[in-house]
Every structure is written in structure tokens, then in C-alpha cells.
Amino acid sequence: MPPWYAPTTFNAWCRRLLTPGTVLFVIVLGAIVATELLFDWAEKAVGAYLVTTNEFRPESGAIWEQGRQSDTARQTLAEYADRRRHSQRQVRQADTLGRLLDGVDAAQGAMVSADHFLELYLKLPPVLSHQIVSAHDLLALTASGRWARTFLEHQGRDMRIYLLDDRNQVVHRLNIDANLLVHVKRGEVAVGATLDRISDFAAHIYPAERFFRTLNTFDELARARIVADPEALLRLKGRIQRVGISEVTFGESVDLGFEVAAVEGPKVILMQGVAGDVRRLQRVLVSEEASQRTWSREVLP
């Protein structure tokens, strides 16, 4: 048995340290360290313990709070990315100017090619497209080769449109005010109903035969300003039975509703006419109607 007092020489220190118990302890400790470095069993054991006891531990403290904030941030970013992708997809796939304007992100705006914007612009009735920008202006920009893309963004209730070149420099700026914006969107809609069910038209509905007969008494320019796109009406499948004139004036335009007897049921095609000419036609129609009523009363016995 080694003495209880401290060794006094180096050899005595070595004999004290190299006892079987000390050597065995060092070997066991080295084996534990080596296996931990090779197999990470301690971390795995602690992790397994934490997993099994996770539901019993309170979710509190800085670590849990950071985790919640990270999860919330990831979820918010994912939702934003989804909205952004949906908006971009809607803009790219828009087949009317109204759908394009609906797809413009309120915060980020939207970018489309010059060709795409021009294609949608040409689908508008002339009475509407001319209020956005003159076709001659677009023709000049197209011929110059400077117009490469179009950026759209919200400005309050209005829509601002920038025609850009290859370096994103503005070559022309357009503005669609709130009234015209509503009008553009409505002008591209066919309503599945009759004129009687649309309050704007209910008070001024005329037989189609009488409407177009009276329209033909006007000169060519006035007719074009009242019915801007007669070809579109000719392409309709079904016969136009009645025409309604809206009581409401949007800026310089008035809604016209053409009720069509289609196979799938009645529908109303909305178009816009120049307010002054439409109201002049309406006065003639009202006058004819009043004259007809007067004549009917006179011939009655």
C-alpha cells in the first residue's frame, strides 16, 4: 500500500501515478473520449432525451422566442413569394387590359413587354383606347424602336403606366384615372343577364331594330363615336334584340348595353360611346318615342 504522505522524490511521484488503478482510469477515459469523437454517442443520447421530453418542457425563453420569430418570418416570406408568383402569372397570362390591370401588385407594380401591352391595348374599343393614349403616339414609339417594355403601378386610385426603353429609361408616361380605370375594366365584360336586370340601363331600353335605324341617320363619324366597334357586334353568336343606354356618364363616355339572345341564354355586351354623340342619339330616340305615343293617342277613336 502506498504511503499516505506526499512523495518526496520524482521516482516516488512516478510510482504513485503508475499504479494499476490510475492506468485503468486513463485507459477507460481515453476509450470514452475516442468513441465520442468517432460516433458522437453523447450528443445523440442527449438529443434523444430532449426529443422524448420535449412536450413536457415549457416553450419559453429566448431560444423558443427566436424559433417562433424565425418560423413566422419564413411563413411570411413564403406567403409573399406565393402572392408575387401569382401576380406575375396573372400579368403574364392576361388576355385583356382589364385583367392585366387587376393583376398589378399594389406594392411592387408589374412589368410586361411592349408587344404584350400593345396587343391588349388594341383589344379595347377605340373610344376607350384613345382616352388612354393616342394610337399615333404608340405608332411613333413602335417605329422608333425605343419602346421595349411597360411598367404599371398604382398611384392612389389611378394607374400610372411607363413606357420604357432597353435601359429602363422612361420614353413616355401614361395615366389612367380612377373613372377611366373602372370603365376599362367594365368595358371588357359580358354580363350574363338581361338589360332589365341592370339598373343603369333599365330606364332607357330600345328595340335593336329601332336603335340601329336611328343610328344610321347620323353621319359616319358620329356613328363611329357611338358604336366604336361594330365588327365585334357582328361576330357575336346570336341576334341583338335590345339596346340600353346608361344613365351614368363616366368622363367623356357612356355605357351601351347590347342584349344578345345566345344559345346559352341572354347576355349583355357592354361597350362605350362618346357621351355627346350618345346623348344626341338618345334625345332622338326619346323624341321618336314621344311622337309615336302622341300619334297613337290621336288615331284612337
Rank of each mutant, 00 (worst) to 15 (best):
residue 185 K to Q: 07
residue 295 W to P: 02
residue 124 L to K: 05
residue 162 Y to C: 08
residue 128 L to I: 15
residue 136 H to Q: 13
residue 96 T to P: 03
residue 73 A to H: 14
residue 6 A to Q: 13
residue 77 L to N: 09
residue 299 V to Q: 11
residue 142 T to Q: 14
residue 25 F to H: 04
residue 174 L to R: 06
residue 189 V to M: 11
residue 236 L to R: 09
residue 192 G to C: 04
residue 51 V to I: 13
residue 225 R to S: 04
residue 193 A to H: 09
residue 153 E to C: 15
residue 24 L to N: 07
residue 258 F to D: 00
residue 225 R to N: 08
residue 175 N to R: 12
residue 218 F to M: 09
residue 213 R to E: 14
residue 279 R to C: 02
residue 105 D to L: 07
residue 267 K to L: 10
residue 7 P to A: 02
residue 54 N to S: 08
residue 174 L to G: 01
residue 212 F to E: 03
residue 25 F to S: 10
residue 127 V to E: 09
residue 30 G to D: 02
residue 168 N to S: 14
residue 111 M to C: 04
residue 179 N to E: 13
residue 279 R to A: 02
residue 63 I to D: 03
residue 269 I to W: 07
residue 127 V to K: 08
residue 201 F to V: 01
residue 291 S to D: 14
residue 222 A to F: 00
residue 162 Y to S: 10
residue 62 A to I: 12
residue 236 L to C: 07
residue 111 M to F: 13
residue 120 L to W: 04
residue 56 F to A: 15
residue 1 M to H: 14
residue 237 K to S: 08
residue 127 V to D: 04
residue 52 T to H: 15
residue 96 T to W: 00
residue 265 G to Y: 00
residue 39 F to E: 09
residue 166 D to R: 14
residue 9 T to N: 05
residue 97 L to D: 00
residue 220 E to F: 14
residue 228 A to V: 07
residue 272 Q to T: 14
residue 123 K to A: 04
residue 24 L to M: 10
residue 87 S to V: 06
residue 273 G to V: 10
residue 204 H to G: 00
residue 81 A to H: 11
residue 10 F to K: 11
residue 70 S to T: 09
residue 102 D to A: 13
residue 35 T to Q: 13
